[in-house]
């Protein structure tokens, strides 16, 4: 009886500690976000009042000003176009690349696979100048095409590596069954391999999306025209052009967070499945 009680006590205390840690983590990460939301909904005058007016003075004026007085919508659209195109391009290339790295026999295959990851080890700041020079020679600086190509090249090594792990864990029998059933290699890839690798592909696309969506450095160096700028540098411009208009800035930050939030919530199911798969078998 006593041992049972002790066991139960230990179990409960372990759980309590676990939940406490979890809760601390949530609060720690959540407070800045909640504060961001609060700030975005308050007029400038009450932002710094003490004690803070938590339950009153709510307004959407910051958002209204954001849409009417700044280029925010342009930045948002640019970010979506650039991130979306990069993810699509990245995933298409990485899917075919990873497939060929796992399914075809050719000389130097392993070396090639290792080298792709090796390129990922250079910090972005190290490659930004060469990338700039290269794009400048091609006449692609200050263009969406240029920055999309730059983003694709920096995220591709890692996405290729991730997808390679997924394809390696994929049973080859299924593809062979498809060949026997009358599919050619491309058909077996489209009808059998990709649907199976979807969790992996989605997890990888999230990675690529996050890298691109948040990037500041490449956008700052490669984009100069206002109508081409993406959100991270656009936000900085808002910051610079106002006398630290926190309300405006925070409302922009809220909107920046929304696409990422929606993206993560929708693909969460696949993401966990994909990560699990990679962890066990990759």
């Amino acid at each position: 009886m006593l041992t049972k009680l002790i066991f139960e006590f230990k179990r409960l205390s372990f759980r309590s500690v676990l939940y406490l840690c979890g809760a601390t983590l949530v609060v720690f990460c959540g407070i800045p976000l909640i504060w961001m939301l609060f700030t975005s909904l308050k007029p400038l005058e009450v932002l710094f009042s003490y004690p803070p007016a938590i339950f009153s003075h709510y307004t959407l004026s910051n958002f209204k000003r954001l849409f009417t007085d700044t280029y925010f919508l342009v930045y948002l659209k640019n970010s979506i176009v650039v991130a979306g195109t990069t993810v699509i391009l990245d995933i298409v290339i990485a899917t075919f690349g990873a497939y060929s790295l796992t399914r075809f026999r050719f000389v130097g295959k392993e070396l090639l696979a290792s080298l792709t990851l090796f390129t990922y080890m250079f910090a972005p700041i190290m490659i930004i100048i060469p990338v700039y020079v290269l794009l400048n020679d091609l006449g692609l600086t200050d263009s969406h095409l240029g920055i999309i190509l730059a983003y694709t090249s920096i995220s591709l090594p890692f996405t290729l590596w991730l997808l390679r792990a997924f394809f390696q864990s994929f049973p080859i029998d299924l593809e062979e069954a498809a060949f026997i059933d009358g599919a050619n290699r491309f058909q077996s890839l489209v009808w059998v391999v990709i649907p199976q690798a979807l969790p992996g592909i989605i997890a990888t696309s999230v990675f690529a999306f996050v890298v691109v969506w948040n990037d500041f450095l490449f956008a700052r160096v490669l984009l100069t025209s206002t109508h081409l700028k993406t959100m991270p540098i656009g936000l900085q411009d808002i910051y610079e052009s106002t006398i630290v208009d926190w309300g405006l800035l925070m409302s922009a930050a809220v909107i920046v967070s929304i696409p990422a939030l929606i993206f993560f919530l929708t693909i969460q199911k696949f993401l966990i499945k994909g990560w699990g798969m990679g962890a066990v078998k990759g």
Partner: peptide, 30 residues
Amino acid sequence: KNRDIAMVFQNYALYPHMNVYQNLAFGLRM
């Protein structure tokens, strides 16, 4: 695909994302 053969694999190799009907019909569809 051009040999007109069918093969039954040791581990069945059924397409997990397709139902039984789609599995059976896949060869005909291809």
